[in-house]
Simulated scan of single mutants.
Amino acid sequence: MGNTSSMLTQYDIEEVQQHCNNAFSQQEIVSLYERFCQLDRNGGGFVSGEEFLSVPEFAVNPLSQRLLTMLDGLNFKEFVAFLSAFSPRATVQQKIEFIFKVYDSDGNGKVTFNDMLDVLHDLTGQFISEQQREQVLTKVLEEAGYTKESLLVMSDFVKILGSSGLKMEVEVPVD
């Protein structure tokens, strides 16, 4: 499975399926493999950030630069595991863990007020002032029982997302 020019065996498909907690069917994994091979232009078995940016929908995503740090250099199994958070079969917990990783840009297991402001800035651009972003974020944190000084770990993040009434339904088309 390391070389993208080879075909997936049934064993490979089942192994990837297990690795992504059955978020994708076997046929979806085959489709994802075909897409992975298209992205892996040099056939090295890994997809670079530059190759991901060749996908127009990805390049225009306001969070693309944050996502690139998570994506750069993934092999096929890691690529499918990354995409599994977007599957309709992924659990809410898996989706929240993915979102937490997007906010936790330095990977230290904690999300700060500034981390959240940075993501909010990426998402809103010039449409909202910095002061408005800070006010909104401060209010959301206060409603969940936190302050601007709080360092949020995963369980805190789950609590905040739950208190905001967020419904997580994001899907990735595989064809």
Rank of each mutant, 00 (worst) to 15 (best):
D72Y: 03
S64H: 15
E78N: 12
F52S: 06
S48E: 03
T69L: 14
L63D: 02
L83P: 07
F98N: 05
Q94M: 15
T69A: 15
E97W: 14
N42Q: 12
V80K: 13
L32K: 12
Y33R: 03
K77V: 08
T69D: 07
F82T: 09
R89F: 08
F79E: 07
P62V: 01
L67M: 15
F58H: 01
F82Q: 04
P56T: 08
Q38R: 15
T112K: 00
S87G: 05
L39Q: 02
T91F: 06
N61C: 11
S84F: 11
T112D: 00
V55H: 03
S31A: 15
L71N: 11
F98Y: 12
F100M: 06
L68R: 02
S48Y: 00
Y33E: 01
E97I: 15
N42M: 05
E51Q: 11
L74H: 02
I99S: 15
Q38P: 04
P56R: 05
A59H: 12
Q65W: 11
K101A: 13
R35K: 15
L74F: 02
S105H: 07
V111F: 00
N108G: 09
M70D: 01
A59D: 06
S84K: 05
S105D: 03
S48C: 02
V111W: 00
F82V: 13
F46Y: 14
F36V: 10
N61V: 10
F76Y: 01
S48R: 04
F58I: 07
P88Y: 07
L39F: 07
Q94A: 15
P56A: 13
F82M: 13
Y103T: 00
N75H: 03
V92L: 15
D40F: 11
Q94P: 09
I99C: 15
Q38K: 13
E34C: 12
M70A: 13
N42V: 14
G73Y: 04
G73L: 04
P56D: 05
L74M: 09
G73V: 01
A90E: 07
D72E: 05
Q65C: 08
Q93L: 15
D40K: 03
F58L: 13
D72A: 08
K77M: 13
L63Q: 07
N42Y: 07
F46V: 10
F98M: 09
M70N: 02
